[in-house]
């Protein structure tokens, strides 16, 4: 047993470092706040906020790939201090560049509402239409409790992919030779205690954007002029 002690010390030291640094990692994971426009129509709470920064420079370039770019924005109203959303809503947008007409075609769907087809002449315009929410309805106004404090949480996803596909890609990357490594002849099933390789991160979407609105109460929300657009 004595012969194992140096290795044990090394492992324990690394363990301590990683555990200690996980606190710092958590702090850096904080979801930022973003000032959000809030208004009440006669029937609904609507929000206005931009998620255009979901697109990076490369993503802008790829808008002209000729293939569809998908944007999913999910919105949740949550009572402060509660982990249960009061209401959720989403908007999905598909953008495709028409190589011959040289304009962007968009199809926008809010929830189960009808598809809305739009054209855009520039990438900026296409991104704004896909990723900026204007008077986006979140919840019936009647469901808001006077005196309660709320926040609206947002998540945008660029080109989301399915969970099954994600798992498959990860599996193939981590175990490139499935079927080759036969267990039971001296190998350990619980396997790779160390495996070193270039391990690119495959996300469940190409880019994600998450933030929350400022805290608000019902009495602080302005009434929208002219009601729902």
């Amino acid at each position: 047993m004595n012969a194992h002690r140096p290795a044990l010390r090394l492992d324990l030291a690394l363990l301590a470092i990683v555990v200690a640094s996980s606190g710092a990692a958590r702090a850096s994971d904080e979801v930022p706040r973003r000032t959000t426009g809030l208004a009440l129509t006669p029937a609904q709470l609507v929000v206005s906020v931009g998620l255009q920064d979901l697109f990076g420079p490369d993503d802008r370039e790829r808008l002209k790939s000729g293939f569809v770019t998908r944007v999913l924005v999910r919105v949740a109203l949550q009572e402060e201090g509660s982990s249960e959303p009061v209401a959720i809503a989403f908007q999905r947008t598909e953008i495709v560049y028409d190589l011959w007409d040289e304009r962007f075609r968009l199809r926008i769907t809010r929830g189960t509402g009808p598809d809305v087809h739009l054209d855009a002449r520039t990438p900026d315009e296409a991104i704004a239409r896909a990723a900026a929410l204007w008077d986006f309805p979140v919840v019936e106004a009647a469901r808001l409790r006077p005196g309660a404090a709320y926040v609206v949480a947002f998540r945008g996803d660029l080109n989301p992919i399915s969970e099954e596909m994600l798992a498959d890609v990860r599996r193939w990357l981590v175990q490139p030779a499935r079927g080759q490594r036969r267990v039971g002849t001296g190998d350990s099933f619980f396997g790779s205690f160390v495996s070193i390789f270039v391990n690119p991160r495959i996300e469940d979407s190409e880019r994600q954007l998450r933030f929350v609105s400022q805290r608000f109460e019902l009495r602080q929300v302005r009434t929208a002029k002219g009601g729902h657009p």
Partner: peptide, 13 residues
């Protein structure tokens, strides 16, 4: 395709 990631929407700072 879909975004399947579970999301805790109310996470504040």
């Amino acid at each position: 395709p879909s975004s399947n990631a579970p999301w805790r929407p109310g996470a504040t700072s």
